[in-house]
C-alpha cells in the first residue's frame, strides 16, 4: 500500500497526475477524508492527468453531485467522473443517481464521501485516504481492493 506525503496544494495536484497514470484505466476510486483533507485537490490532478483538464476548471461537485471531464476533441478517450455524495444522507437517495450505470462505463469514477454507502460501492475498487497533517501537509494512502 503506497503512502505519499505532499507539502503543498501544487504537490497534491502533481501526485494526482502521477496517479492518473498508475490507476487502472477504468473503475471506481473512493476519495476518503474529512472536509478540507484535499479530496477535490487530488481530483484536479487526476482529471488533469487523464483528461487534460485545467485544474482550475475542476470545482467541487457538492451541489451538482456529478461532474464529467473528457479530453476535448477526442470522443474516443474515456471520461473521468467526479462525484460527491456529501449532502446525501440515505442509501435510497444515492441509489437513484444511477451510479451503477457509470460503474459499467469505460471511465474512471472518482467518488467523494462514497465510503458512507459501502453497500452501493463496487467490491472491486481503489481507496485513497487523505489526511491533513501540520502546516498544509497531507498524507495520502492508496489501497486496491479486489
Amino acid at each position: 500500500m503506497p503512502t505519499y506525503r505532499t507539502a503543498t496544494e501544487a504537490e497534491t495536484i502533481a501526485l494526482g497526475e502521477q496517479l492518473a497514470r498508475e490507476l487502472p484505466p477504468r473503475g471506481v476510486v473512493l476519495l476518503i477524508g474529512n472536509l478540507g483533507a484535499g479530496k477535490t485537490t487530488l481530483a484536479k490532478g487526476i482529471a488533469k492527468g487523464r483528461a487534460a483538464i485545467d485544474p482550475d476548471d475542476v470545482s467541487s461537485p457538492t451541489f451538482t453531485l456529478i461532474h464529467e471531464y473528457s479530453r476535448t476533441g477526442d470522443r474516443f478517450s474515456s471520461p473521468v467522473y467526479h462525484i460527491d455524495l456529501y449532502r446525501l444522507d440515505e442509501p435510497r437517495q444515492v441509489a437513484t443517481l444511477g451510479l451503477e450505470e457509470l460503474f459499467e462505463k469505460d471511465a474512471l469514477v472518482l467518488i467523494e464521501w462514497g465510503e458512507r454507502f459501502p453497500q452501493l460501492m463496487p467490491a472491486e475498487r481503489t481507496e485513497i485516504r487523505l489526511r491533513a497533517l501540520e502546516n498544509d501537509e497531507r498524507e495520502i494512502a492508496i489501497t486496491t481492493l479486489i
Binding site: T41, P55, S60, F63
Partner: peptide, 14 residues
C-alpha cells in the same frame, strides 16, 4: 473569474 473549488453558497451550507 470563477470559483476553483467551492461555490460561495456551498461554503455557507458546509
Amino acid at each position: 473569474g470563477k470559483t476553483r473549488d467551492d461555490a460561495a453558497g456551498e461554503a455557507f451550507d458546509k
